[in-house]
Amino acid sequence: MKSQDAWRPSACLHHLKRRAEILANIRQFFSERQVLEVETPLMCQFTVTDPHVTGIPALYQSMGSSITRTLFLQTSPEYAMKRLLAAGIGSIYQISKAFRQGEVGRLHNPEFTMLEWYRLDFDHHALMDEMDALLQQILKTPPAERVSYGDLFRHYLGINPHTADEAVLIASAAEKNIPVSGTLPNRDAWLDLLWTHYIEPLVGQIRPLFLYDFPVSQAALAKIRNESQPVASRFEVYFKGIELANGFHELQDGKEQAKRFVLDLALRKELGISERLIDDRLLAALEHGLPACAGVALGIDRLMMLALECDQIADVISFAFDKA
């Protein structure tokens, strides 16, 4: 890139105009369904405990004071939106910026736009129905395909991802010719490797794929159903090699959520990454009572990439990270 062009936008203006139309279309979609648009803070006291998501710190100083507080730019509006839900606001959506440390690439920008919404009395399947309607409206996609995480791994790799031990996953990666340098930290990382390197490129090419019922070790903030094979009521959306969304039938049990956060902290310690404080305001809201609901977050920039048939996220962002 010539340096005299460094001031220019990353995306062409045509894409930015289409982007505005699509955002208006999304707001229309939720307005028709009486889902309320909300705004929550970008700068927060707490950040997530999830070992795979790192918040970007922001330093705050009171006027005239030398004491600096470390706040975090939000990695998603989930916790604040759940506090609104617990306060009784009803079904809500938000289109906001989210920030993640170190995530730059063809599909990643450290600052990105997220659409997150929550529907009262929906489970993850009902929310998938609504997600499908949104994708059909915005991307003109055919109806999505739904496959459970377990079925997909059994079909493509002949393994049960809920029960297979780490050695089986390592052998499967070797058998599918996925060369890895060194070792990966745990079973879930090997599942992530098999998914991203082997299965994902083979699925969701013609119609979106809704992948649901995740291993309980990846439940995050989803309910766990104790069926013959316990699974997490979580889903993800994939289309044309792009991970587009992640949703949960939301866990309402504050004590169970607190336990999972403590597990996150233990895993952080094991991985040698920085400690975090647990967001006790979220836990207090769950204790007060989160209404039964399902929620999902969708990457707006990636949605734009698919709508505008772009190859990299910078093509749909006014000023991508290197030009921000």
Partner: peptide
């Protein structure tokens, strides 16, 4: 060098 990362998973 391609950065591959599931939203809630291991980065590669």
């Amino acid at each position: 060098n391609e950065f591959v990362k599931p939203g809630k998973g291991q980065a590669f």
